[in-house]
Simulated assay, not measured.
Amino acid sequence: MPMSKDAAFLAAVVNGALDGIVSIDESGRILSFNQAASKLFGYAPEEVIGQSVAVLMPEPHRSEHETYLRNYLTTGEAKIIGIGRQVEGRRKDGFLFPIDLGVAEIQVDGRRFFIGFIHDLSERRRFEAHMRELHADRLDLMEHMTVGLAHELKQPLAAITAYLNILSRRLKEQHVPTEIGDEVITKITEQVFRVSEIMDNVRQFMTRGATEKSPQHLNDVVRTACEFTDAIAREAGVATTVRLDAADDLVVINKVQIQQVVVNLKRNAIEAMHVCQQREMTVSTRSVEGNMIRVDVVDTGPGLAESVRSRLFKPFTTTKPQGLGVGLSISRSIVEDHHGKLWAEDNPGGGTIFSFVLPMTPETARIRWVSG
């Protein structure tokens, strides 16, 4: 019986589709196999039509297909039909390749048929693997550069300290009033030592994957970190409020690393508000459920752009023209290394809230539970 024009047109569309299209009956026997399916699986249509569709599957799905189809026809419980999923297909030569498989059910004259739509994911997987490789290479290069930089900076930092000591001694020898000068020199020396500590911690983290931790009062750590950036905030016209409300604030941390997290979040907030008229920042601590302490850095900036929200903590994501995009990624790694969590959310009043939580020491958690 000759094919109608509509049927011929539909057959041509199916055969010319870019994705593989395979139809089967209730027993799983292949009824049709378009050109794209032939190209994907390496079979000519006449080689597979009439055979079980399991020929296109690897084990264990190959052996389980008939049972799965029978269960579906009996119970209606679907694993792929009407749902779709990423699985593997098996070529004629035995080669396995990733596919996105969608299956639709149709009924014609009281009989049920199933249409499989098969999209080859091989190229996408190769691209993703290539991007992961490039990303890993970049991170590896950055790790080596960071370790080298941490080592090389030790010498100029030591030289700066030596020159400061010489300057202080010369001023005293010449009987120059040095009350203000001594204070400034002391502040500079403290910052030099702080940079040296940071470099030591970076080198430890990069080479050993861990750093030394000790019990610390988180309120004191946050307060000190805020002092480091107070001058920057004032220069930028940012009004800063610090509320350290966590009553039980003992945590086991690397003090320098957590200070760096707070400093980084504060600097990001300050930079985010440089185009805003309202420039207010709040840094706070409080106890939360789960024996955790939460730190919030709240700004009144423009908020997070949708284009960066989903990848905010991924390396090399930045909204700054000159930024490397590693600060938030490193900060999250530090917090997670302390068994905590770092995240961002919208500030209801406009702007962004960056928050992280850290676990209290077991002793603090026990005392808090007993006293509560």
Results as ranks from 00 to 15, higher is better:
Pro315Ala: 14
Val55Gly: 10
Glu271Cys: 09
Glu345Ile: 10
Asp220Leu: 07
Ser23Asn: 04
Gly20Trp: 13
Thr229Lys: 04
Leu244Lys: 00
His144Pro: 00
Ala78Cys: 07
Leu312Tyr: 11
Val147Ala: 12
Val297Arg: 03
Thr161Gly: 10
Glu105Thr: 00
Phe117His: 06
Ala8Cys: 06
Leu164Val: 05
Phe9Tyr: 11
Tyr68Gly: 00
Pro362Thr: 01
Ser214Lys: 10
Thr74Trp: 01
Arg111His: 08
Ala17Met: 13
Pro359Thr: 15
Ala344Gly: 03
Thr229Asn: 01
Asp299Trp: 10
Lys320Glu: 15
Arg243Met: 03
Thr364Ala: 15
Glu183Gln: 14
His130Phe: 13
Met3Tyr: 15
Arg286Ser: 03
Asp120Met: 01
Asp109Glu: 15
Gly340Thr: 08
Thr319Trp: 15
Glu227Asp: 04
Ser329Lys: 00
Val202Gly: 00
Glu363Gly: 07
His217Glu: 14
Pro156Glu: 08
Glu235Arg: 14
Ala104Thr: 12
Pro315Lys: 05
Gly84Pro: 06
Gln155Pro: 02
Asp109Trp: 11
Leu31Val: 12
Thr211Ser: 10
Leu121Cys: 03
Thr74Pro: 00
Asn15Arg: 07
Ser371Val: 12
Ile166Leu: 13
Ala36Tyr: 07
Ile30Trp: 08
Ala159Asn: 05
His217Trp: 13
Leu358Pro: 01
Asn165Cys: 05
Val202Lys: 02
Trp343Ala: 09
Glu46Gln: 09
Glu306Pro: 01
Val222Glu: 02
Arg85Glu: 14
Arg368Ile: 05
Pro362Ile: 01
Ser355Asn: 09
Lys320Gln: 13
Arg286Asn: 03
Pro98Gly: 13
Tyr68Phe: 14
Met3Glu: 12
Arg208Asn: 09
Phe193Asp: 10
Leu312Cys: 09
Arg208Ala: 14
Ala37Met: 03
Pro60Asn: 05
Glu179Phe: 10
Asn264Ile: 06
Met131Pro: 00
Pro177Leu: 12
Asp182Cys: 06
His119Ala: 13
Ser4Met: 10
Gly301Ala: 10
Ala269Trp: 15
Asp299Thr: 02
His61Trp: 11
Ile293Leu: 05
Leu31Thr: 10
Gly94Trp: 11
Ile198Cys: 03
Ile106Arg: 06
Arg194Gln: 03
Lys79Val: 15
Ile367Asn: 04
Glu88Tyr: 14
Gln278Tyr: 10
Phe356Trp: 05
Gln155Tyr: 13
Leu141Glu: 14
Ala104Cys: 05
Met3Ser: 08
Val308Trp: 07
Arg169Thr: 11
Lys39Arg: 12
Thr352Val: 09
Arg243Pro: 00
Ser214Thr: 09
Thr189Glu: 07
His338Asp: 03
Pro58Thr: 06
Ile253Arg: 01
Glu64Ser: 13
Gln277Gly: 15
Gly94Tyr: 12
Ala233Gly: 02
Gln35Tyr: 03
Lys154Pro: 02
Leu10Gly: 01
Val297Thr: 03
Arg91Met: 03
Glu47His: 09
Thr75Tyr: 04
Met3Pro: 02
Gln204Ser: 11
Met3Phe: 14
Arg243Leu: 05
Lys5Glu: 13
Phe127Gln: 14
Ala136Arg: 14
Val263Ser: 08
Met206Ala: 13
Trp369Leu: 11
Leu324Gly: 09
Asp100Ile: 09
Gly181His: 12
Ile293Ser: 00
Leu40Tyr: 10
Gly290His: 06
Ser333Gly: 09
Leu96Phe: 06
Val370Leu: 12
Val147Thr: 13
Glu64Trp: 12
Asp245Arg: 06
Val262Ser: 03
Gly303Ser: 09
Pro156Tyr: 10
Ala104Asp: 11
Asp220Phe: 06
